Amino acid sequence: MSESKPQAERNTESAIKVRQVTDVHANWNEEGRGQPGKFSFQLILDNGAEEYAIRPPAEDADVLMELFNSTDVLYFDMERKVLIFSNLSLGG
């Protein structure tokens, strides 16, 4: 028998629109021999409370990797599908 969450808890969780990205898993897959591949990033939100995958083109994936490495805190707006980078380290 599976336990379900109380309605109030489900309502609270569904009301959360912006979550902290607590981990990022990167992935690349081959589309076909000699063909360009596809990148994806799996965003782990609030230590696993939610997950979301983004599939940027290669040029954007390169920029995202730099931003991931340059930020202290990262958020994801679930409603608008927006990554929010906080406290960027702007090295020269």
Rank of each mutant, 00 (worst) to 15 (best):
Y52R: 08
E51W: 07
Q7M: 05
L74S: 00
A8N: 03
Q7N: 06
N69I: 11
D23P: 05
V73R: 13
S4R: 15
S86K: 05
N69F: 11
Y52W: 13
D77H: 15
E30H: 07
R10N: 03
G37A: 13
E9Q: 06
E3L: 15
D77M: 12
D23T: 10
M78V: 08
G34F: 09
S14Y: 07
W28L: 12
A53S: 15
T71Q: 07
N47E: 03
L45P: 01
Q42N: 14
E59A: 09
E3Q: 15
R33H: 04
P36D: 09
D23R: 13
L74Q: 03
V21N: 01
E66W: 08
R55C: 04
D62M: 11
Q20N: 00
M65C: 02
D23V: 12
N27G: 11
D72Y: 07
F85Q: 01
F76K: 00
V73F: 10
E51K: 10
L90R: 09
S2V: 11
Y75W: 11
M78R: 04
G34M: 08
A15I: 04
D77Q: 11
D72T: 11
E66A: 10
A58R: 14
N87L: 05
E30K: 08
T12K: 10
V82K: 14
N27R: 10
P57D: 15
G37L: 14
S86H: 05
A49P: 01
V82I: 14
H25D: 07
F41W: 03
E13T: 07
R33C: 05
M65V: 04
A26S: 14
Q7I: 06
V24P: 02
S86G: 01
K17E: 07
I54F: 03
V18C: 09
L45R: 00
V18R: 15
Y52N: 03
E50M: 07
F85T: 02
S89G: 11
G48S: 04
I54Q: 02
T22V: 06
I16D: 09
E9R: 01
